[in-house]
Simulated assay, not measured.
Amino acid sequence: MFISLDFESKDPIYLQLSQQIIEGIARRQLCPGDTLPSVRSLAADIGINLHTVNKAYQQLKQDGFLHIHRQKGVVINPDGVPKADDQYRSKVEHELHPIIAENICRDLNKEEFLNMCSHIYSEFTKDGES
């Protein structure tokens, strides 16, 4: 998996790293049971502080994407990512509110917004299927 960080971005590095690992899982470039580099190894490979990698890994562990074992290292959750529940759906709805509000303020209509969402969603699924 290729990690590309934007050091000029307003998004924190740990968040960019977390998002790219999640994208790798969504694109099936990373599969349940796959191992990731150690904190030290990944930090050295991409030239960032090991605490930044650790923060990303810990967040992904908390969200159910990773397992961290002393002997096995960092592993994509062998059971797969936990399925969406009511709490997760509520979180997504909460996060969408400001995005949709800003789109309305900027005169991006519903059809354009939904087309963008559909296009991005299809990038993560085979041939655009759900």
Rank of each mutant, 00 (worst) to 15 (best):
E111M: 00
D63Q: 09
K126H: 12
E102H: 14
Y121Q: 09
K91A: 10
Q19P: 11
C105I: 07
V39D: 00
Q71T: 13
I68D: 03
Q71I: 06
K126Y: 08
V92E: 09
Y121T: 10
G73A: 01
I3E: 00
D127F: 03
P12R: 08
L5I: 15
H67K: 12
D6H: 11
I13C: 05
S41Y: 01
F2W: 02
R89G: 10
I21D: 00
K61S: 11
P82V: 04
G80V: 03
H119R: 14
D86C: 02
D6G: 08
L60F: 02
S18W: 01
G64I: 03
A101N: 14
I21C: 05
P37V: 02
F2H: 11
G64H: 07
E112N: 10
I21W: 05
L15N: 08
F7N: 05
S38P: 11
H94A: 09
E111L: 06
V81H: 10
D107E: 15
P32A: 09
K10M: 12
G73L: 03
Q59D: 13
H94T: 10
E129P: 00
L114E: 06
T125Y: 10
K91E: 15
Q71N: 12
V74W: 03
L30T: 01
K72S: 08
L60M: 04
D86V: 01
H94M: 09
R40C: 01
K91M: 10
F2S: 12
K126E: 08
T35G: 12
E123F: 08
E111C: 07
L108Q: 15
E95R: 14
I99P: 14
E123V: 03
I48F: 09
I46T: 07
D11T: 15
G24K: 01
G64T: 01
I104T: 15
V75M: 07
Q87S: 10
Q71W: 04
Q58E: 07
Q16N: 09
A43Y: 05
N115L: 12
Q87D: 11
I120C: 08
M1G: 10
K110C: 06
Y14E: 11
R106L: 15
V75D: 04
G73D: 02
F124C: 02
D85W: 05
R70H: 09
I48A: 03
P98A: 00
S90Q: 11
N49S: 09
Q59G: 13
L36S: 07
P37R: 06
